Amino acid sequence: MVETFQTHGSGILIAPEDTTKVSALKSGVIIFAGNDRKTGKTIVVQHADNSLSTYGYLSSIDVHVYQSVQAQEHLGVFEPKTNMENLYFAIEKDNKPIDPVQVIQVDDRP
């Protein structure tokens, strides 16, 4: 992790060293899969508890809007490049951002 929730304010930035397959945190429905002005190629999954998980700065998107996904199902790919070295990940519940570190294990906290 290269930028914490406390620093970023809405999510975290992760710096995978190699090409990484990005998977769903938990099951849900894709409500956005496309280009976002802030986070480039982005996927947003809505979960049964109405929380949202967002995956941004992806290299490729392998799902489509309204597609149901299961936990750990492949969503897309992140390839570190000079102009895009970090993967964005955020969780939102009740319109409020949640620190992803409270939900998932992230190695190498800064």
Rank of each mutant, 00 (worst) to 15 (best):
D18R: 11
H47A: 04
N95V: 05
S53N: 02
A48F: 13
E3D: 07
E17M: 06
S68E: 14
A71T: 12
E3Q: 12
H74T: 14
A33T: 00
E79N: 14
E3A: 09
N83H: 10
L13R: 06
L58N: 03
A33I: 01
S68C: 08
G11T: 03
S23D: 04
A33S: 00
T82Y: 09
G34H: 01
H47P: 06
T42G: 00
Y55C: 10
L13A: 09
K21Q: 08
I30R: 05
K41Y: 01
L87E: 09
Y88L: 09
I98K: 10
P110Q: 07
D107S: 14
V65D: 14
S68D: 12
F89P: 03
V101I: 09
Q46G: 02
D36P: 06
Q72P: 07
Q67M: 13
K81H: 07
Y57T: 10
V103D: 03
T7C: 10
E3G: 08
Q70K: 14
L58W: 04
V77D: 10
Q70M: 13
G28K: 06
N35L: 09
K38V: 11
S27C: 05
R37W: 06
P97L: 04
F89E: 02
S53K: 01
T82K: 11
V65E: 15
G40E: 01
T4N: 00
K96D: 14
P80Q: 10
Q105S: 11
F89N: 02
S10V: 11
Q70I: 09
H64R: 13
H74R: 15
